[in-house]
């Protein structure tokens, strides 16, 4: 017993050494694990710096990114029915080939007939900033170039260049299908699929799906939206 006499200081020292050794060992093994190729934790930030150095061959991408296009120039539904009882649809040019465009129309207040009740909330644009007074079945760029309705995105891009760039890089507008174009196509929306060209701001929506937590009732201050 005598030879085993220990002082409390020795004990504290032993404890400290014990803990330091086990923690060092643990940290060492943790680091070793990190270096293991089986645990490939590629660092995204490192990749960004060499973004332009390594080019992945993009030729083998068998599938395309397909951007949805509108069917064509809009058709206007007629109010009445013809003698056979059919509802009719006419192109814009049906009227506008004979009725001259009224370049004075800058707001919806002066619109009548087919255009009555149209809600326009798109900056300070006048009708003929986008519609073509010379060919009512197509659109017109700011420089006067004709643009088919199918290519409406070209028109939008005149002002919304940032969005167009983001769209071109998949950062705006969403998509469906495949991220991997070697395995399947990717479908993207057109501007006008989500934005009404006359009032383009994205509509408000109702939240209809919420997780039902047992003990997480909506708090008082969250009820204001209802």
């Amino acid at each position: 017993m005598k030879k085993l006499k220990l002082r409390i200081t020795n004990l504290v020292f032993a404890t400290t050494v014990f803990l330091v050794v086990i923690m060092t060992f643990g940290l060492y093994l943790k680091r070793a694990e990190r270096g293991n190729p089986h645990h490939d934790r590629a660092d995204v930030r490192g990749l960004l710096q060499v973004a332009n150095d390594d080019k992945v061959e993009s030729d083998d991408k068998a599938f395309a990114v397909v951007v949805h296009r509108p069917a064509g120039p809009p058709r206007v539904a007629l109010a009445g029915v013809d003698p056979q009882g059919r509802r009719g649809e006419v192109a814009c040019s049906t009227c506008h080939s004979v009725r001259k465009a009224n370049l004075e129309n800058k707001t919806t207040d002066t619109l009548n007939e087919f255009h009555e009740g149209l809600v326009v909330n798109h900056g300070k644009l006048a009708c003929y900033a986008c519609h073509n007074p010379d060919d009512s079945d197509s659109l017109r760029l700011a420089d006067g170039t004709n643009v088919a309705y199918q290519d409406v995105m070209t028109l939008c891009s005149q002002c919304h260049g940032q969005q167009a760039t983001a769209f071109a890089h998949g950062a705006h507008g969403g998509m469906n299908g495949h991220w991997d174009l070697t395995r399947g196509p990717q479908m993207k929306n057109n501007c006008v699929d989500c934005h009404d060209p006359h009032s383009p701001s994205f509509p408000s929506m109702i939240v209809d799906f919420k997780p039902k937590d047992r003990f997480n009732a909506p708090a008082e201050h969250d009820q204001e939206g209802q």
Binding site: L4, L6, L11, A14, T15, F18, L19
Partner: peptide, 12 residues
Amino acid sequence: MLSIVWAISIHT
């Protein structure tokens, strides 16, 4: 003696 150090380690 080991159990003394060990007791501290379990709670640490």
